[in-house]
Write a protein that binds this DNA or RNA. Structure first.
Lengths: 211, 211, 211, 211
DNA sequence: AATGAATGAGAATTCATTCAT
DNA sequence: AATGAATGAATTCTCATTCAT
């Protein structure tokens, strides 16, 4: 009858509601941080209880902030997406012309080798998930890098965004699950970059060796 | 306690013990087959109970053959490895000279897009797991393909087995989790193969476009 | 421990303590009102949290006024009892002579078909509960109606208060849980009233049909 | 893929599947029996854990037999319905002509005073629930009694099944929740029966008092 | 060997209640 | 007085594993 407060949504997204009290925000962040760590280590089947314990809060607190395990997982993703997107902006400015895409991919794969979640995330690009908004941002960002690199002649013209995302996803999964070390990472990426690069006929070709 | 009962090994590997009765072997195979299907569909967290049901046996029977869920999972892997290895031998004989590695990778990735387990398996290559024996066989087989392709000048000299495995793993994970369709698979592999191929300066280079 | 803090009674009854501040009283009433609605809809297992939300106050406020869910439930009952009692007085004055009891029962059952709480309440009449005081008032009121109806010859002499209460309770439960529609309600009550009425030998008897 | 065994239904109804092993059936019955007792005492919000404890089995066993708490509740109901229906048949044969309906109602209300579940059940008559089948049987049985009593002239012609069920439901709720003692039960039923009986003009009418 | 019933340790989630702000 | 964050016990349900039949 009295609709006063709408049933709380099941996403755990504070959205634009009211700003959380300082202590609540601290806890929320603590929980996300630890959750990220826990799920990174043990995969998404790790128990919410453990997240709570590591964050130093009671189980109820976790569920107050994220009414569902799914919601917690999604919150983590959203955070990740945002961080990736920031990184994207920085790169667009800083990287050597034409090398932006490579720099970005390298960076992401490096992280993936440590964080299980990055991988799970990447797998969702191209798919849906309720995180749609930030997801599109990321796609857009990557596309910018791609186009820029192609303009600089560093990446073949016929490469499309889809393939780049596919490669990124695959490489991250690999880096994570197979635990590539820094060297293997570098060598593997080199091969892929070579494939993306296309052949400037002359110079680059004569290196003869993958560094 | 009962000294006459030999401690069952926890691997579920019948090894060289006594040859299973005919019906027992039939059951064992049926279980593995269905387990493969179930885990492929629902991931490794699918329930053993379901495997039993689909195989048409009682849960006890599954645990008789594989004293642990882990053991069942490992048995599946071993089977996979063996099949991959066979495929390898065939390819070594059948593929166009120099294209063996590509053919193999293509084949495996194709399967991965369907079968969750292939991927999980590949992630373990280079890592340990008790399946070491067959694993080495697979590595060896892939190495053969690699060398052969390099001799034919189709794959760059400086590419090493490790990178090939890394790429294979990554590509499979990607194909599986991101659900690549046939076209995306082809385009993505094309890029990677281009990277592996290196540029024999002339001919191959002039294609200009990824098909 | 802190000797200055008087042990709060667990009834939530402000009693004769200090008169609540105006806004506090407003809140108290708002809470009771919404609680009634919520429990009516979802039964007594509805969450206190929801009551708070609908009343537009924080959960703490609810527990400030009613230190226990039980206390809240009891407060609702007390309110109900009081309202019923008022209705009783009105009826005593307004109804056609001899029909007061029937009018009252009809009214209560009608409400019950909608409000879960009325029922729960009625079930407690004759039983205990800390609401004893108002409860007695209600019994008294109903007794007055009964006696009056008996004097008018509309209700048999040998019917006692206990049976009336029993019937009332039963009918309300029925009306509520089985969701009687208006027609079924009328027909069912007609039978019961017939039973209460007894047969003044002549006149009334000849109707032959329940309306 | 292999449909071998259909996903187990969520009703916990062994149906016509395979006959349970002797020990399993023993447990199943034990569980239902104790569940009936527990829910009778504490209402349907009593914990499944307690049922398990009282039945002397592990919690998993309860859920194996009844995959849902709902399923357990329904199984209890079905049992009750069957018992009621048997009772119905007996009565049809044994009761004094014309008194069958009264005898049945009396019997059911008597039980209700003890068993919470009977009440909950009755509330469902006329409503749905998946127990439809047995439910219809019960309705039919009661209708038979009604008709028979009407033929004997003991129950008014214009009384319909709906009202009988409504009264039965209401009386049971009352008997249960208000804890009527034997005497109150008798007196209350007497009033209702009087209402159902209608007035044989002469004899019965002159009793003047409800016994 | 096979069966399938029983076990019981989790896991996710809810909710009355407390208490610092 | 009010707020609303935190607590943690309790509840339903799942599943790997054991063991009597």
């Amino acid at each position: 009858m009295t609709p006063s407060k709408p049933t709380p949504d099941r996403t755990g997204d504070p959205g634009t509601a009211r700003p959380l009290r300082a202590d609540a925000r601290r806890n929320r962040e603590r929980i996300i941080a630890e959750a990220e760590a826990v799920f990174a280590e043990k995969g998404p089947s790790a128990s919410t209880e453990e997240v709570a314990a590591r964050a130093g809060v009671a189980i109820g607190t976790v569920f107050k902030h994220f009414p569902t395990k799914q919601a917690l997982l999604q919150a983590i993703m959203k955070g990740l997406l945002e961080r990736l997107h920031e990184e994207l902006s920085t790169l667009a400015a800083d990287a050597r012309p034409g090398e932006e895409l490579f720099a970005f991919v390298t960076g992401v794969v490096e992280q993936a080798a440590r964080k299980r979640t990055v991988v799970t995330l990447l797998a969702e690009i191209g798919v849906d998930l309720q995180v749609a908004g930030s997801l599109q941002l990321l796609r857009d960002g990557i596309e910018t890098l791609l186009v820029r690199s192609q303009r600089a002649g560093t990446v073949r013209e016929d490469v499309r965004l889809d393939e780049v995302l596919a490669l990124l996803t695959g490489l991250c999964h690999g880096a994570l699950h197979a635990g590539w070390d820094a060297d293997l990472q570098r060598r593997t990426l080199a091969i892929v970059f070579e494939g993306l690069r296309g052949q400037p006929e002359g110079a680059a070709r004569s290196r003869g060796s993958i560094r």
